[in-house]
Design a protein around this nucleic acid. Structure first.
Lengths: 157, 157
DNA sequence: TCTCTTTGTTAGCTTGCCTTACTATATGTG
DNA sequence: CACATATAGTAAGGCAAGCTAACAAAGAGA
């Protein structure tokens, strides 16, 4: 049996890359004096893509529980970057929107992301990098479904 | 200027993949009733590669602070998977080793890792996947140096 | 009406790190 | 030799990014 532990195995490899990238990104963010974390940036990015959305739908799109999203939104709202508005069609629900102020923050986040990408990728040949990104996109598209949307079929514990 | 926020950008992409993978791996680990977390498994994997090592060298190879490693080792030691031995050459130092019991645990971790890899990669064509892994290895080798010098050649005590 | 579900939240836990002391020991300098 | 300084590990405590469990308010269906 050749299932030996190996720091080059897929799981460790990816976690390492993500962890190191997160660190570089965090430093870029801090250097820009942006009052958001990487995970908060992710929430904002999804909001920018979706437009005004109910919280539970946004949570689903992010692959997190509504409760986890509540925490992120609390902080983003306190920072004046998002707003929770009443849904006229359902008085339980809230519709979250990005504030006008968020546009500038999003642009700065994107710039920090680009600097991070340059720092991380600058040892690889550009073609390899593009291929890499392309496969990564395919991969995420493939694994995002089973957990984010369609996993209702088998949550019978 | 194409610095617009984009959930397909490198940072989000990788974080998503790592996060989802971590979730799948955690479920595999739990299904095997292994008493270790992913980060603890990483510590053990590095120990297996390095052999008996002083704590601060292991911490450096893992890219974490000695204090963070202390916590992991406390739990692994309590679980009987690692031992801290006195270094005869320096009474401040401790040399950490894997216990005999660790071998079986490592093998099970490796199996959980393989199942995870299969679950994650089963939508991609195998060639793409191999190319992807290869680039990932290059990438990590490249970014690991600047911050941790992790792949230092000698860790002989 | 009466029950069942959905929406968001309060409270509290876990994991995986971090910084800031602090002790014990080693090591170099006058 | 004494003393200053550096190093190895640790105790204490914090923070981010999630989680579950329990619940109130509101909708939806019988």
């Amino acid at each position: 049996m050749r299932t030996k532990i190996d720091t080059d195995s897929f799981g460790f490899l990816f976690n390492d890359i993500a962890r190191i990238t997160r660190g570089v990104f965090a430093r870029e963010i801090e250097a820009s004096r942006l009052p958001v974390t990487a995970a908060e940036a992710r929430v904002m990015a999804h909001m920018a893509r979706s437009g005004p959305t109910r919280q539970h739908l946004l949570a689903e799109s992010l692959g997190m529980t509504p409760m986890s999203l509540t925490g992120f939104l609390d902080r983003l709202e306190a920072a004046g970057l998002v707003a929770r508005e009443a849904d006229p069609k359902d008085r339980r629900a809230k519709i979250v929107t990005l504030s006008p102020k968020a546009a500038g923050t999003l642009a700065q986040i994107a710039q920090a992301g680009e600097r991070t990408e340059q720092l991380i990728s600058n040892g690889l040949c550009p073609e390899d990098w593009q291929t890499f990104l392309k496969t990564a996109r395919q991969l995420r598209a493939h694994i995002d479904g089973p957990r984010g949307a369609a996993s209702k079929a088998e949550d019978t514990v």
